[in-house]
Design a protein around this nucleic acid. Structure first.
Ligand SMILES: [Mn+2]
Ligand SMILES: [Mn+2]
Ligand SMILES: [Zn+2]
Ligand SMILES: [Zn+2]
Lengths: 133, 133
DNA sequence: TAGATTATTAGAATCATTCTAAACTAGAAA
DNA sequence: TTTCTAGTTTAGAATGATTCTAATAATCTA
């Protein structure tokens, strides 16, 4: 039984062709930022038959199981991250690509006061990149 | 000539009923975070006839002219901000509301290294809020 | 191997936003 | 004033990302 199947079994997800292919991809790439569009393109290239609905179903399920982290950048696109640590991102609009910023690469010497009756949830930091000059 | 008309004239935008109503709203509220949906609801309430397309046209134009700042939060919705300073936001998902975090309320003691060949563009910081306990 | 459960899929639906192309209006010029 | 034109508004269609539907297929367990 390969690693992908192990992982799926642990999460009580049936190891279908499609799921194994997705998890294989995650394992192979190790550190990636995944988009439904990027993933389906990759899988079609590998001649794996899969529908967009299945891509979304499974990415969302993997996020529910804690195997991926789901978030949004700027606007219309959903991203899934294999890096489960708390961390932030550079965004390169030219390549439509994210680059991790580990938590230890940023530190705050002053943090804003949280509004009354509320507590801090997730923090999103995106540093948009532009080309030099 | 009222303030709204002045502002529009300065930006070479004809002071139509619709535009004046939008700019009046901005002036009256002074510090607001605007969404197309929130704005059209407000204007319809005031019995001002306006279409969604016009709302978007004008918010985008005002952003182009530097009268509003345009950005996105988490996912699918476009926000326009009357606060033109560099600043960050709390997001309250319960109320679908943003709260400003002025730049001087946060400071970084350590900043991440910008990838080669790139420079820093805009920085987006969103601190999502949850209810206490 | 049967039966039940879980997955996959094509295509429709949804929602925010933009586009299109026709009808209207503000303001400059006559 | 009236006339003319560029700039505006509008309804509704189009778009793109994501989710839903409900029919079909695959997997698992007994
Ligand atoms: Mn969209
Ligand atoms: Mn969307
Ligand atoms: Zn990441
Ligand atoms: Zn703001």
């Amino acid at each position: 039984m390969n690693d992908a199947k192990e992982i799926l079994k642990k999460s009580k997800l049936r190891p279908t062709i499609q799921r194994v292919a997705i998890v294989d991809y995650i394992i192979e790439k190790h550190k990636v930022h995944i988009t439904a569009a990027k993933l389906i393109k990759y899988l079609k290239n590998k001649k794996i038959n899969i529908s967009l609905a299945t891509i979304y179903n499974n990415l969302n399920e993997l996020a529910d199981k804690g195997i991926l982290k789901k978030f949004y950048v700027n606007n219309d696109k959903m991203w899934f991250d294999t890096n489960l640590q708390d961390h932030y991102h550079f965004y390169d609009p030219e390549k439509d690509e994210l680059i991790d910023i580990n938590k230890n690469e940023i530190s705050f010497s002053k943090s804003p006061k949280i509004p009354n009756g509320k507590v801090k949830g997730s923090i999103n930091i995106i540093i948009n990149l532009k080309n030099k000059n």
